[in-house]
């Protein structure tokens, strides 16, 4: 297994380099202008100068190489320096990946935005999984019961109604129609500056997370519960279930040990594959609730033609996707003894 993991990790290096190059090419092809948001009074010659100062005058392979050096060499060195307070080679004038719009290092921006995304989107993923697995198990065990029918209906809704609709609907109901002093009122805007210091502020943090988490959890739970149900149904009719019953095992053991253990194998894989989306942030939901997470950062970057920001962020998503693909494969090997990787 270790050998396999190392081999796969080695293989990801050329893959990721290739992906980063493709992203770079695509962004270069995009018809946008980093000076487009500047005041109209700035004359074209000055704009041209600004573009040149951003390095846009150089040929594409040079720019790509410079980004590679900045991202793969300078940024890791910078992280080491910050962690240990050292000053490795060239720390005085080291060039980091700079955002064109804010003139601050992209990695710092990402670190700033990460907690909001992880709290809101990550929490919704966890909540979604915790809701989905029991629903899937019960729906399959009691197939076509009223519980299953209700579960199917809710999943259909969660699946087919987009989050920008459910999000706005929630805002209309819980932030607008309900009076502000009611216990059922929830804030429609996520306040990043809010600090949790005591129980009351913790309560407020929960309240401001509630709506975006609910909207995203509904969507996640809809997907995962369907998957869980299908996987359980596949396994419930297997011969080994009859064997377990013939051994006189209790129904609870048959279901939650024998069937669930088998059914979780594909579900865990799907859950692992979904994790990069958590980091990617639910772009639309973050917009609706004004959560200034990674999704929102990406949107702002795209709108402002902030190429280094978009390039770096997109590449980090690509790394996560490749990484979690590998993790899913390894989990599969751990969970299913029939799978061997050597």
């Amino acid at each position: 297994m270790l050998n396999y993991t190392i081999r796969r990790l080695m293989f990801t290096i050329p893959v990721l380099l290739f992906i980063s190059f493709i992203i770079f090419l695509l962004l270069d092809l995009a018809p946008n202008d980093p000076t487009g948001n500047l005041p109209m009074t700035i004359p074209p010659e000055v704009r041209e100068k600004i573009r040149e100062s951003l390095g846009l005058g150089q040929p594409i392979h040079v720019r790509y190489f410079k980004w590679c050096v900045q991202f793969f060499v300078n940024e890791p060195l910078n992280i080491i320096d910050q962690m240990f307070g050292t000053c490795t080679w060239g720390c005085e004038d080291r060039l980091r990946v700079q955002s064109w719009a804010t003139r601050s290092p992209v990695v710092d921006l990402i670190v700033e935005r990460m907690p909001q995304t992880l709290w809101v989107v990550g929490m919704s993923y966890v909540v979604g999984i915790l809701i989905a697995i029991p629903i899937g198990v019960i729906s399959a065990y009691r197939q076509y019961s009223w519980f299953d029918q209700a579960g199917t209906f809710v999943s259909m809704v969660g699946f087919s109604v987009p989050t920008f609709f459910t999000g706005v609907l929630m805002i209309v109901i819980f932030s607008v129609m309900i009076p502000t002093d009611s216990w059922f009122w929830f804030p429609s805007i996520y306040d990043t500056t809010h600090k949790v210091t005591d129980l009351a502020s913790f309560g407020f943090q929960i309240r401001q997370m509630a709506m975006p988490v609910f909207v995203l959890a509904l969507y996640n739970a809809a997907q995962i519960s369907r998957f869980m149900r299908a996987s359980m149904l596949d396994n419930l009719n297997q011969d080994y279930v009859r064997t377990a019953r013939a051994k006189g095992m209790r129904e609870r053991v048959v279901l939650l040990v024998h069937v669930l253990r088998n059914s979780l194998i594909p579900v865990v894989t799907v859950i692992a594959l979904g994790v990069p989306q958590v980091f990617g942030g639910a772009i639309i939901t973050e917009q609706v609730f004004k959560v200034n997470g990674l999704g929102q950062l990406l949107i702002i970057g795209i709108q402002g033609a902030d190429i280094p920001l978009v390039q770096t962020l997109t590449f980090i998503f690509a790394v996560l996707i490749v990484l979690f693909n590998l993790i899913a494969d390894i989990l599969y090997g751990i969970l299913d003894p029939r799978i061997r990787y050597d």
Partner: peptide
């Protein structure tokens, strides 16, 4: 079941839990 009456089924390939 399983204590005083035992069962053996047809297909040994699928009758045991693989995990």
């Amino acid at each position: 079941r399983g204590a005083r009456i035992g069962f053996v089924f047809q297909d040994p390939m699928t009758s045991l839990n693989p995990v």
